[in-house]
């Protein structure tokens, strides 16, 4: 995109995004995203971390405005290269999808139409957005398949999804995503049971894609380890809000929000090796209780019912986002400083 912004310029700015899902004919309002703001610079990698129901996936779908049934964006802006995607006409937004903003969905095994050849499915964005066709298109697709590390791309072009392994399909989906040279790639982390080797390959792929094209990356994940491995900046989400935003190193070394601290402490198996099974009575630190019901959020801080630091104020008043340092903030009345 021939914008005037510099390499370090802001690519995406989300301001006070609010999204709700109206279920049961509007009787149940699930408040999925509640006033989320963040900024992503060109070429950077942002991790959005949260458990199920934290609003991390809904945030990524809101950016592309691919909302589930009954969902509505109630407020806020999504500024991509200065244009507000929330108020953009559907036609114009469609021209952004796949061309300037690409996305990789959770499960590569079901992300491709089983009835069409994989080559054709990688070709579709090029056909749609750049009007390519014929031999030039075919050559470009084969080039892309080779670029994402698929051996013998000419013969793979004509295969169907069911003839390929999960790792291969992941690469095909990656090739389709970067085909038009997008500035932003949103990667929804696979949540289904996954082999560590396949997961590592997936993260390698994301890294390769980024290095190849210099795109900015948003990784949606439940695992802080993914953030440690891949991200420059991290947003920890809880109940549709940003509990904490920080550069990755700051987040691991000086977490300010009690939820972030608790999450870091629950990571199993990442203690010193000699700790393992030395003490049979040793137990993993836990976060007691359950995440809140998004259709009946408490008035104060949503984490208050599970928070060891919570007092009366936390239970009645929503904490504001407190800036702790450059690029580091936490939504907490009593952040660790």
């Amino acid at each position: 995109m021939g914008g005037t912004s510099t390499k370090d310029g802001v690519l995406l700015e989300v301001r006070d995004l609010e999204m709700s899902i109206f279920a049961d004919g509007g009787n149940r309002i699930v408040r999925a995203v509640n006033g989320l703001s963040f900024t992503l610079r060109r070429g950077r990698t942002m991790g959005i971390i949260g458990e199920s129901g934290s609003g991390k996936s809904m945030t990524s779908l809101s950016i592309l405005r691919l909302l589930p049934r009954g969902a509505r964006i109630l407020g806020g802006q999504v500024l991509f290269d200065g244009r507000d995607l929330v108020s953009l006409a559907e036609r114009d937004l469609r021209r952004m999808r796949g061309r300037h903003i690409a996305m990789i969905l959770q499960d590569p095994m079901v992300s491709l139409d089983p009835l069409y050849r994989v080559g054709d499915q990688v070709a579709e964005p090029l056909r749609t957005h750049q009007g390519m066709g014929g031999d030039a298109l075919r050559a470009r697709v084969i080039e892309l398949l080779g670029a994402v590390g698929i051996p013998a791309p000419e013969s793979r072009f004509n295969q169907y999804p069911h003839q390929m392994s999960g790792g291969m399909l992941q690469r095909i989906v990656g090739a389709a995503a970067i085909s038009c040279g997008p500035e932003l790639l949103i990667a929804d982390e696979p949540t289904t049971a996954l082999d560590p080797t396949v997961q590592a390959q997936y993260l390698d792929l994301l890294e390769e894609l980024q290095q190849r094209t210099g795109l900015a990356l948003i990784v949606i994940t439940h695992d802080l380890g993914v953030a440690a491995r891949l991200c420059d900046d991290v947003i920890v989400m809880y109940a549709g809000r940003a509990a904490e935003k920080a550069p990755v190193r700051t987040l691991f070394e000086r977490p300010a929000h009690p939820y972030t601290q608790a999450l870091l402490s629950t990571l199993p198996g990442r203690r010193a090796p000699d700790d393992i099974k030395v003490d049979a009575h040793k137990r993993l630190p836990t976060i007691e209780g359950q995440p809140p019901d998004l259709a009946a959020l408490p008035p104060g801080c949503p984490f208050a019912p599970r928070c060891p630091r919570a007092d009366a104020k936390c239970r009645t008043e929503m904490p504001p986002e407190v800036s702790l340092a450059t690029d580091h903030s936490a939504a907490c009345w009593y952040p660790t400083t």
């Binding site: 021209r95 999808r97 796949g98 992300s111 089983p114 579709e124 749609t128 995503a177």
Partner: peptide
Amino acid sequence: AEYVKFLRVKGLA
């Protein structure tokens, strides 16, 4: 289906 979602992500008409 997920693959229809991915078609939308790709910006197809």
